[in-house]
């Protein structure tokens, strides 16, 4: 179950390329439904359809959801690789999407944790760490503080995003998880902080850990409305 990043993966799956994708807008029904509507009068499943004489293991909703996220992200990356010629553009696009997610995700974060402003950048680092715990269920370790205290690293032992992933050799410049720096940048920007993030190490490129470097750039002063400190 590897997530193929090979450009040809989708077509190798296309057992049924024939099917025209066709989604109905509003009330209009698709043609084939019309023609078969007479048959549709037929029978309707009565009562709850829940009862199946099956004693299989129950699916773990939380786990499934996480896999859905992982696989969806994978299919997005695969699609981007197909759409763009240049891997750099894919990295950029992923970062941008991350940014868009980040500016929304910060609201979720603040609502759930009820945390206020950060005292300093170390406090920020801890909050980012707890954000990873809440949203991805992982706790990256905070290491490698710069002497000035404006740069630190987040080290990931495991990463749900890369759970089923293997990078083919020809995509060595792809930053598969580049959505994460985007999320951090977007989220921090919403709390008046400009940060820069980049990957230093990547497990997909055979490093031991995935290391994300975060650097404080500046406080965005003008974004604070007058009268607020």
């Amino acid at each position: 179950m590897t997530f193929g990043l090979y450009a040809e993966t989708p077509s190798s799956l296309s057992v049924n390329k024939v099917y025209v994708y066709n989604i109905t807008v509003q009330v209009v029904r698709t043609r084939y439904i019309h023609t078969s509507s007479r048959q549709l009068v037929a029978r309707r499943a009565t009562g709850p359809i829940v009862n199946m004489s099956r004693t299989g293991t129950k699916l773990d909703a939380k786990k499934v959801n996480s896999e859905l996220f992982t696989l969806t992200y994978g299919s997005l990356v695969a699609q981007l690789l197909q759409d763009y010629e240049n891997v750099e553009d894919v990295n950029k696009q992923l970062e941008r999407m991350g940014y868009n997610i980040g500016i929304r995700l910060i609201e979720d974060f603040l609502a759930r944790t009820g945390s206020g402003r950060c005292y300093d950048f170390r406090d920020t680092a801890e909050k980012i760490q707890s954000g990873f715990k809440i949203f991805l269920g992982i706790t990256p370790s905070i290491t490698n503080w710069s002497p000035a205290g404006d740069e630190f690293s987040l080290c990931f032992e495991t990463n749900p995003l890369t759970e089923f992933v293997e990078l083919p050799d020809n995509y060595s410049s792809l930053k598969y998880c580049n959505v994460l720096p985007g999320v951090l940048r977007g989220a921090c920007e919403m709390v008046q902080m400009e940060v820069a993030c980049w990957f230093v190490q990547d497990q997909l490129k055979n490093d031991n850990v995935t290391e994300l470097r975060v650097k404080f750039v500046k406080r965005l002063e003008d974004a604070i409305p007058a009268g607020e400190d």
Partner: peptide, 22 residues
């Protein structure tokens, strides 16, 4: 299985929104 993280629900929704956007 406990070692790997589990993504929160809202992440899929945000990601899906970005897919649509893209």
């Amino acid at each position: 299985p406990g070692a790997t993280g589990e993504a929160d629900d809202c992440l899929f929704e945000y990601l899906h929104a970005e897919l649509v956007n893209y």
